[in-house]
């Protein structure tokens, strides 16, 4: 039965998708808010004379990791959190030394959770503590499907650790109140933005600074204000080659060249123009006017590294589940 089925479907597959030819295209599976960024990066990459077609797929970073594990044939992943690439390492799709394959731990740009409020900031939101106040509605994406949502959790927790001097009961109380203020957890960062802007839900959107600044620019500075909190959480956006896919397709060179481009001054320039903070200090300095000062804590400082975060916070029944009553 299986064999018959396999033969039948193989006929269809071979008839409809080009699997043997030398690949001239690669697929980039990416996070939700990076649609415009990678459209611009791809155009800039093509301008350097590269002939490869880079296809894009966007959704919540973890939802994308799931899709790759399910067989989405992405040659490269450009995620927003290390934990999502680690899922692919566990699944045998990405080699475990991926971070050393590219400069800066394979993170070409970074951002951090910031706030977008309605014009004039009617609820007076200036820092993380205000998000847990009574009568404030907060929008951010589902931490189970979106790296963006998990960064929000980590940033809020990092702020609370300082604020409550590590008193776990108080930290949990704050986070529980914060999560209770969220009327809807969309599965991706862009869907959360749409909920805030199109559906007019909530008083404050928590999303990457990249999204906050780009929405403000796109939809009008007269409608929204960007608010930078006192402290936030460094969100480096890692990239990796999906070994299992490129080896099967013979597209490793194309994939590598494309990701390397993101670290070049041209690639970095495009990132900065799309409000992603570039890892290249010279490019960042040139765009200093666009990016306000902010104190960022790192995963190592606040939580002792990604492995610890994954085990203590994000595992089933972990600290995140305690405050995110997603039943």
């Amino acid at each position: 039965m299986n064999k018959l089925l396999a033969t039948a479907v193989a006929a269809v597959v071979l008839g409809t998708s080009p699997v043997f030819a030398q690949p001239t295209d690669i697929l980039n599976a990416s996070y939700d808010i990076a649609r415009e960024l990678f459209e611009a990066e791809n155009a800039a990459y093509a301008a350097t004379g590269a002939t490869v077609t880079v296809n894009q797929s966007h959704a919540g970073s973890s939802a994308q990791a799931r899709a790759v594990l399910e067989g989405l044939a992405a040659d490269v992943v450009t995620f927003n959190q290390v934990t999502d690439i680690d899922k692919l390492v566990d699944g045998g799709f990405v080699s475990d030394d991926w971070a050393s394959e590219f400069p800066n731990n394979a993170a070409p740009f970074y951002s951090f959770p910031a706030f977008l409020v309605r014009a004039g900031n009617p609820k007076g939101i200036s820092d993380w503590g205000d998000l847990a106040a009574d009568g404030v509605q907060v929008i951010f994406p589902n931490p189970k499907t979106s790296g963006n949502g998990r960064y929000t959790y980590l940033a809020a927790r990092a702020w609370a650790i300082e604020e409550y001097a590590g008193d776990e009961a108080k930290i949990e109380e704050f986070l529980t109140k914060l999560f209770a203020n969220v009327p809807v957890f969309e599965t991706g960062g862009r869907a959360a933005t749409t909920a805030f802007t199109e559906r007019q839900l909530g008083d404050v959107l928590v999303s990457f600074e990249a999204e906050v600044l780009s929405v403000k620019k796109q939809l009008g500075a007269d409608k929204y204000d960007a608010v930078t909190p006192s402290v936030s959480f460094l969100s480096e956006f890692p990239v990796a080659i999906v070994d299992k896919v490129v080896d099967a397709r013979g597209s490793r060179d194309l994939a590598k060249a494309y990701l390397e481009f993101l670290f070049t001054p041209e690639g970095q320039e495009v990132a900065a123009a799309n409000f992603h903070r570039p890892s290249d200090d010279a490019v960042l300095a040139a765009h200093a006017a666009d990016f306000p000062e902010i104190r960022l804590v790192t995963v190592d400082e606040a939580f002792g590294g990604w492995d610890k975060v994954a085990a203590e916070h994000f595992a089933d029944g972990g600290l995140l589940d305690k405050v995110f009553l997603n039943q």
Binding site: A59, G60, S62, A63, R66, N142, K144, T145, P183, V184, F185, E186, T187, A195, R199, L201
Partner: peptide, 21 residues
Amino acid sequence: GNLPGKTEIVSLLIFIRIDEY
């Protein structure tokens, strides 16, 4: 609005569970 408990239908909840793995 896809708000859990208010405007979330069963089909959408299934879709979200899939995305959540």
